[in-house]
């Protein structure tokens, strides 16, 4: 069963097609890796799923609910971290989460839990404007995770984290389906990173979906296309390059 399905979802900005008719199928309880170079349209797609921007074409269904009719219903089920973390700089990490908790009508413990999940408990009472980049990123993650939403949209969640932090967060994301029964979409530039977390991947370039399927299928494809299956990154780069060449060398 698919938790999220899009049909020819598109977004144009005055003639420029940022997302060009992509049809995604995101299985329930999976970690779905959303892969693509800069400007591929990953953030744009995620913003459309959240109703932050309006699609110029196509449609999508999330957990049986359609946009724009059930926008508020959809948002009740989705936790998100898009592009840069969003927060009130004058408030502490805990106060920021408290605001979200109140809006979502969650229990008090959910804030403590979210802070623990991202290991921010120690810094919970510092004003967020005094947080380091990585701490802000962790807060952004906590804001997505608070209340254990069944669907998570995480846009480059490991941005700005140190190697230990990256490892922790990857492990956390990988464990989310089992722990909370969540469906997770993570975006990244690196196939090597996605490989460590995701079961299914979608590869995006210039707003087009180049590949969608399980990692196993991607490996099989790698073999048939003559790439070493133990270094998928190389194949990913070649795929992007071939697609760029097909488009007439524009990047």
């Amino acid at each position: 069963m698919n938790m999220i399905e899009t049909q020819n979802l598109s977004k144009s900005y005055s003639g420029f097609r940022a997302v060009d008719g992509i049809s995604l199928h995101i299985p329930k309880g999976a970690v779905y890796g959303f892969l693509g170079p800069n400007g591929a349209g990953k953030s744009t797609t995620m913003k459309m799923l959240l109703g932050l921007i309006k699609p110029t074409g196509g449609s999508f269904v999330i957990d049986g609910k359609t946009y724009p009719k059930d926008r508020v219903e959809i948002l009740k089920e989705v936790g998100s971290l898009i592009e840069s973390p969003a927060f009130y700089g004058n408030l502490s990490g805990r106060e920021n989460l408290e605001i979200i908790r109140r809006i979502l009508g969650l229990s008090k413990e959910s804030v403590t839990e979210a802070l623990e999940l991202v290991e921010l408990t120690q810094h919970r009472d510092k004003p967020v404007k005094k947080y380091s980049l990585g701490m802000k990123q962790r807060l952004g993650l906590a804001e997505a995770l608070v209340g254990r939403p069944p669907i998570l949209l995480l846009d480059e969640p490991t941005n700005g984290l140190d190697p230990v932090g990256i490892h922790e967060i990857r492990t956390l994301i990988k464990s989310l389906p089992e722990r909370f029964g969540a469906t997770v979409i993570v975006s990244s530039h690196l196939l090597s990173e996605i490989e460590l977390m995701a079961d299914t991947v979608g590869i995006l370039n210039h707003g087009h979906l180049l590949f969608e399927g399980t990692l196993e299928r991607l490996k099989e494809n790698a073999l048939t296309w003559g790439y070493p299956s133990d270094n998928l990154e190389e194949m990913f780069l070649a795929m992007i390059e071939a697609d760029n060449r097909q488009r007439g060398g524009v990047r």
């Binding site: 109703g51 932050l52 898009i82 969003a86 927060f87 009130y88 700089g89 979200i100 809006i103």
Partner: peptide, 13 residues
């Protein structure tokens, strides 16, 4: 200032 509005808009309000 710090995109808090984006978070608010992605909450069910």
């Amino acid at each position: 200032a710090d995109h808090a509005i984006q978070k608010m808009c992605s909450l069910p309000i």
